[in-house]
Amino acid sequence: MTAAASALPRRWHRFSLSERILRSCFYLLAAVAVIWSIKTIEIIPEFLQDAPAQTADLFARMWPIDWSWYKSGVHAALIETLHTATLGTILAVLLASLVALLAARNVTRSVILNTIARFILVATRSVHAMVWALFFVAVFGPGALAGTLAIAVHSIGFTGKLLSEAIEEAKTGPIEALTAAGATKLSILAKGYWPQVKPAFLGVAIFRWDINIRESAVLGLVGGGGLGMALEAALENLYWDRVGLVLIIIFGIVIAAEILTTWLRSRII
């Protein structure tokens, strides 16, 4: 036995032959994809060459920044952006909670409802907030209402998906105990699921608010109100010093939101 074993050299490969062939094919495909992409986007060499000069030129035109415009042209838009993001997030969390409950297989034991809910989550998320804004601008006219609804509907997918996952990860033991005590479904939600899901719920809501601050800042470009409207006004008139101001404000508000949400999350979780 041992003699036979020592006679045969033992071989070891990380992958089997078929796996290696498959991996080679994959590498080849990846290379083809890269070449194809470069051909498709049709890079014009001259434009590529003077890109640094153009960039420098743009920044030069923004300088000095027109700070005086803040009070008359930007401040109200900034407040509107904050309101759009906040109200949109609250609305999204409310709607997403309902969809998440329907999507969670341990709470809703109906494959049909689960599938419908999952479809809503995917559908709302896969359409960009800008596109939702275009849609709501067409329905309600330009302004913060369209922006808020765009933020709310687009956020349902992200928020709802993370919430439904949190609900599905809830421990079954306590749920079973409350079931055994004769609790109703709603009571089990209140005392079995909610305490377990609460940290994730708050974390997701705060994280989404952070993202929505960034998104609502540009929604005005398509008529969704807020800073984007100010940005568009400045761009249209080629007031580059004002464009610079709006960009700096957006940058500042995003950093501030980031710091605030990081602090909030560390307090909660």
């Binding site: 033991g173 306590p174 409350l178 005590a181 004769g182 377990q196």
Partner: peptide
């Protein structure tokens, strides 16, 4: 089920609730 109490191997308390609230959960039915 309200008239049948149950004690579990893994206790099955709601961990993020207070002790008193866990006891009160016995009345949920």
């Amino acid at each position: 089920r309200r008239k049948i109490g149950m004690v579990f191997q893994e206790y099955n308390l709601v961990e993020r609730l207070s002790v008193i609230e866990n006891v009160l959960c016995g009345r949920l039915g």
